[in-house]
C-alpha cells in the first residue's frame, strides 16, 4: 500500500516537472520563434492580427535585401577573419601557458597561477582606457590589431581549463617519451596536444562565441565601415533601418546562425567544457 502511494506520488512529481519544463521551454524558444517568424514576413505582415507564427506567404525578400542593400557579406567576411584568428590565437597562447603550469616545477609557479586566476576579477573597464591610449600611441587604432594581438596571449579562463585537462593526462606518458629522448616541445606536440583534443575543442568553441559576438572591442577600436564585423554592422544598421523590423530580425537571425549551427554540431563539447571548468556562466 505504502509503496503504491509512493509510486503514484512519484508519477505526479514527474508530471508536474514535465509541465513546468515544457512551459519554460516555450518561453525559452518563443523569442527565437518570434525572430524567425518576423524575419520571413514583409513589413506589412507584422500588422497582421491575430499573430501569424507561420507567415503567409513566407517571404525570403529580406534575406536578399540584407545582401544587396546592406554590406552584409562584408560584415560576415570581417567577422570570419576576426573569429578565425581569434580562435587560433586563443588555442595557441593558452595551450602553451597551460602546459607550463601543468608540467613544470619552478619557484613561484603556484603564486603566478593564483595571480592569473585573480585577474579574472579585473573588469575590462579598468584596463580599457589605458589600453586605448597605448594602442593609439603605437598607431593601432582602426585596425584589428588591438583585438587580435591580445588574443594570442593566454587568457585566464582558457589557460585554467586546459591546465586542468593536461593534469589529467598521466605523467608516465611524458616520462616514457623523455626516456626515449623527447624534449618538452616534442612531448607537447606529440603527447599532450593529441590527447587534449576535447579540451582544445572547448577552448575553440568558447572563443568562437566570444569573437563572433564581440561588440565592445570593435566598437572602441574600429572606425572605418569597411572593417566592421557583424556586431557593429547590425547595431549600425538597426539605427538606420529602425522601422523595418522584418529586415532587422533577418539580420539578427543570420548573425546567430553560425552559433546555433555550432551548438547543434558540438553540444556535447560545450556541456563538457562547462562542467570541467565550472566557470562559464
Amino acid at each position: 500500500m505504502r509503496s503504491l502511494t509512493r509510486t503514484s506520488r512519484r508519477r505526479i512529481a514527474i508530471f508536474a516537472t514535465l509541465v513546468v519544463l515544457t512551459a519554460g521551454s516555450i518561453l525559452y524558444l518563443g523569442p527565437l520563434g518570434w525572430m524567425i517568424s518576423t524575419a520571413l514576413k514583409t513589413p506589412d505582415q507584422i500588422y497582421d492580427l491575430p499573430i501569424r507564427w507561420i507567415p503567409d506567404p513566407v517571404d525570403w525578400g529580406n534575406f536578399v535585401e540584407l545582401f544587396t542593400e546592406v554590406p552584409f557579406a562584408q560584415y560576415i567576411g570581417n567577422t570570419v577573419v576576426l573569429t578565425a584568428l581569434g580562435v587560433l590565437g586563443s588555442i595557441t597562447g593558452s595551450s602553451l601557458a597551460a602546459y607550463g603550469f601543468a608540467r613544470f616545477r619552478f619557484r613561484g609557479r603556484n603564486a603566478l597561477f593564483v595571480v592569473m586566476l585573480s585577474t579574472m576579477m579585473i573588469p575590462v573597464w579598468v584596463t580599457i582606457v589605458p589600453s586605448y591610449v597605448f594602442f593609439g600611441e603605437i598607431g593601432w587604432l582602426d585596425t584589428y590589431l588591438p583585438i587580435l594581438v591580445p588574443a594570442f596571449f593566454a587568457t585566464p579562463f582558457n589557460t585554467f581549463l586546459l591546465r586542468q585537462f593536461f593534469l589529467s593526462i598521466p605523467q608516465e606518458l611524458d616520462e616514457a617519451a623523455r626516456i626515449d629522448g623527447a624534449g618538452s616541445v616534442r612531448i607537447f606536440f606529440q603527447i599532450i596536444l593529441p590527447l587534449s583534443v576535447p579540451a582544445l575543442m572547448m577552448v575553440g568553441l568558447f572563443s568562437f562565441l566570444f569573437f563572433w559576438n564581440d561588440y565592445l572591442g570593435p566598437l572602441i577600436y574600429l572606425q572605418s565601415q569597411e572593417l566592421y564585423p557583424l556586431s557593429l554592422g547590425v547595431a549600425n544598421f538597426v539605427g538606420t533601418y529602425n522601422q523595418n523590423y522584418p529586415l532587422m530580425m533577418m539580420a539578427a537571425m543570420v548573425s546567430m546562425l553560425p552559433c546555433i549551427a555550432l551548438f547543434a554540431i558540438a553540444q556535447k563539447w560545450f556541456m563538457q567544457g562547462i562542467v570541467i571548468s565550472g566557470v562559464k556562466g
Partner: peptide, 28 residues
C-alpha cells in the same frame, strides 16, 4: 633546467598579463 623551461612555456600568459592587464591596470 626544468624551471627555466617552465618559465619559457608560460611566457604567452606572462607577457600578455603584463602588457594587457597589469600595466594598463596600474596605469588606470
Amino acid at each position: 633546467r626544468e624551471a627555466r623551461v617552465g618559465w619559457l612555456w608560460i611566457q604567452p600568459w606572462l607577457i600578455g598579463f603584463l602588457a594587457f592587464t597589469a600595466i594598463p591596470f596600474g596605469a588606470a
